[in-house]
Design a protein around this nucleic acid. Structure first.
Lengths: 202, 202
DNA sequence: GCACTAAATTGAACATCATTCAATTTCGAG
DNA sequence: CTCGAAATTGAATGATGTTCAATTTAGTGC
């Protein structure tokens, strides 16, 4: 189900009509509403699925990292690259707050843990991990949008990562060094045959 | 004109209908479209007006500051407080990217100048002022939303300012000191009888 | 004052969707 | 095979942004 609907990333969230989504999924227009209360909720679900998948792949790729700060840096950079590189993500960027909130919810458990771990190791100096990551999520969406709309060049990604590391409380030098470290490749995208909706009812 | 329309900050941008806006301004529904191409453009104009007004008041209040970093800190904090404190702003937060972009456009000229000035004075260490401020704008909208929706308490404003100062490249200690400095009051809001639209045509 | 034209204004009509719901089909238990 | 509950359908509904032909207003030359 999700799969058929996720193809709202072709035209963007707003441009996708429920009619076309239902058609694509080979169901009636009303059926979609048995699985999602509204178009917005569907959009949230679609975005959360993509975001959750990415969070898992990041966690996998950074398993061997000793430095929690490096895990955080890797995550931030990977998300920005996904958002700006993948054509589907660019369409989803239409709804910045939905993206940012989904990012916060899906990556939060990992990112906040890493932030706190790194803070305990003396790498970061922030006082509130949740706040720091909330700020980061919106900032990430902001740059991603700017890059997607070609307002900024793609080579601002690295400086952006540096700034977000500084925001967490790294010195400029440490941040630059961390952002420059070689990054292991990400596992390929999982797109299984899962077809569950979050809630039902009539 | 703007004035009558700005009263879309009563119900929020989306909930405000063009019908009601036209009524409030005592004109026909079509007339609005002689001044603004679309509802979105109108929203942008409304937000930009508010934002521009605030930018000017901030510039005025910080005229006497010797430290450009302090001007930046004052601006960041004042915007967050306006966005979370003023009932009208909260409604406008529905459109985060519109707010963030308007903030970038209206405050950018001042903020980027201050950032660069402070960088020359050795206070900040960032490499790209535009990028830094773009990140800050979205981050500001992010916290403001979180506070407006009571997901976070209002007392995260100060730590948020600290984080954004760190993002610009201040040390944790300097940032905390700067965020704690006493702040002069803001001039009262100007709401003149200006009634110009950005473009016309039929 | 008047005739005439260009610009501004109007608001009813239109088109587009998200959403609903009464009718129908599907499915499973007895 | 029968019956009832759940799922599905898709035409109808309602809300709203936008358009445009008709009308009013404003301005200019005489």
């Amino acid at each position: 189900m999700q799969a058929g609907l996720s193809v709202m990333s072709e035209k963007g969230i707003d441009a996708a009509t429920m009619q076309e989504i239902a058609e694509r999924a080979d169901v009636g227009a009303g059926t979609v509403y048995s699985y999602f209360k509204s178009k917005d909720e569907l959009a949230v679900s679609v975005i959360e699925r993509v975001m959750h998948d990415l969070a898992l792949r990041i966690a996998e790729a950074t398993e061997a990292f000793a430095d929690a700060a490096q895990v955080y840096a890797y995550g931030v950079r990977t998300v920005i690259e996904a958002a700006t590189g993948d054509l589907r993500w660019r369409q989803l960027l239409n709804r910045p707050e939905v993206i940012a909130e989904a990012m916060y919810r899906c990556h939060g458990p990992f990112a906040i843990r890493d932030l706190e771990k790194a803070a305990r190791a003396g790498r970061f100096t922030f006082s509130d991990a949740r706040l720091t990551f909330k700020l980061a999520c919106y900032a990430i969406v902001g740059v991603s949008l700017a890059i997607a709309q070609q307002e900024m060049a793609a080579d601002v990604i690295e400086p952006a990562v540096v700034r977000l590391l500084c925001m967490a409380g790294l010195s400029e030098g440490d941040a630059r060094e961390l952002a420059r470290r070689p990054r292991p490749p990400l596992a390929p995208e999982a797109r299984p045959i899962a077809l569950d909706g979050p809630q039902a009812g009539h």
